[in-house]
């Protein structure tokens, strides 16, 4: 549904995007994950025809962003990082205006606006100016405005940045419902758990480049961070345990004296776990614990981007 091939975008001498390629399948969620300034918003702006790439190809629904931008605009919805609804208009007026500009007949956009207000639990404030809304209400209205045209492709630029945890969960639920209805979603986020929760495909962007892509599990495998951890009951057995674990992997084990623990990076996991269990039992070493520790997506993020993942909203046009 969305295809990006070697897209490069320069702002002055800064490479906002550098040979970025990705594919988002129809009816699924692709998350663009990256720290501030990674180029997430720039890519969204290119795909929503707000910005032209300097080189490379980008297509939405098979349409080229350079040659058929008008056709792309009739099949996409964009909900921004900064809720782009009119503060002085009421919720209903905002939705009806969006419907009108999607070129829906008047009766149809009024009906859809009413339904959307109901769905987003905004009926009671439908005729209040948006400036009286809470942050979560604004985001819901913004999302509703982008859905009025029932676009098959939806772009969500940091849909939950700055929302409280409960409102965030509500947004996740709405997004999941949209995807269940067949919408293709490309969202940007700096939250690992959000990408893992919502997206089938995660593309990690860093300084304008694709640092990695795949499912959450594939990304975790990428940094070969799966550890086999063994905690022995008797500290005297640490040395023996270390030797046994070392024979199972090409990597070197690490010993934590305080925890009575030896750990070693392994490639598969269960295979090494069983082998280690047998070997340790044969050697008569009694264990307090033996486990496979998968890295969190945060570990992956840090390893792939070399940047701390902070929760600050993305203020730059990157």
């Amino acid at each position: 549904m969305i295809e990006v091939e070697a897209v490069t975008k320069l702002f002055g001498s800064t490479r906002a995007l550098d040979q970025v390629s990705l594919v988002a399948d129809a009816g699924r969620v692709l998350a663009l994950l990256g720290p501030n300034g990674a180029g997430k918003t720039t890519l969204v702006r290119i795909l929503t025809t707000l910005l032209l790439p300097d080189s490379g190809q980008a297509r939405v629904g098979g349409l080229d962003v350079r040659r058929q931008p008008a056709s792309i605009r009739s099949m996409i919805g964009l909900a921004g990082q900064y809720a782009s609804v009119d503060e002085l208009l009421t919720g209903r007026e905002n939705l009806e205006l969006s419907g009108l500009l999607y070129h829906l007949p008047r009766a149809e956009y009024r009906r859809r606006a009413e339904k959307a207000l109901e769905r987003m639990a905004l009926t009671s404030v439908a005729d209040h100016p948006v400036k009286t809304y809470s942050g979560g209400m604004r985001r819901r209205l913004d999302l509703a405005a982008s859905l009025i045209g029932q676009p098959p492709v939806l772009f969500l630029d940091e849909p939950t940045t700055g929302l409280d945890p409960r409102t965030r969960k509500e947004m996740w639920q709405l997004i999941e419902e949209l995807v269940a209805g067949g919408t293709t979603v490309l969202l940007t986020t700096q939250y690992m758990d959000e990408a893992e929760h919502l997206a089938q495909t995660i593309v990690v962007l860093d300084s304008g480049r694709v640092a990695a892509s795949g499912t959450a599990e594939e990304l975790k495998d990428r940094i070969d961070g799966t550890l086999l951890e063994v905690r022995v009951s008797d500290p005297a057995d640490l040395g023996k345990a270390r030797t046994i674990l070392a024979s199972l992997s090409t990597r070197l084990p690490r010993t934590d004296q305080d925890q009575n623990q030896v750990s070693i990076p392994v490639s598969a996991g269960p295979t090494e776990l069983i082998a280690a269990g047998r070997a340790l039992e044969d050697a008569g070493i009694s264990l307090d614990d033996i486990q496979i520790a998968r890295p969190s997506l945060d570990d992956v993020f840090l390893a792939l981007t070399d940047h701390p993942a902070d929760g600050a909203p993305d203020g730059s046009p990157a």
């Binding site: 009739s74 859809r112 859905l147």
Partner: peptide
């Protein structure tokens, strides 16, 4: 929500009349 989540057939308009 079926109303809002369902996908409309893709329109392929030319320039706006």
């Amino acid at each position: 929500m079926t109303e809002l989540t369902s996908v409309a057939p893709v329109a392929r308009p030319g320039p706006v009349s």
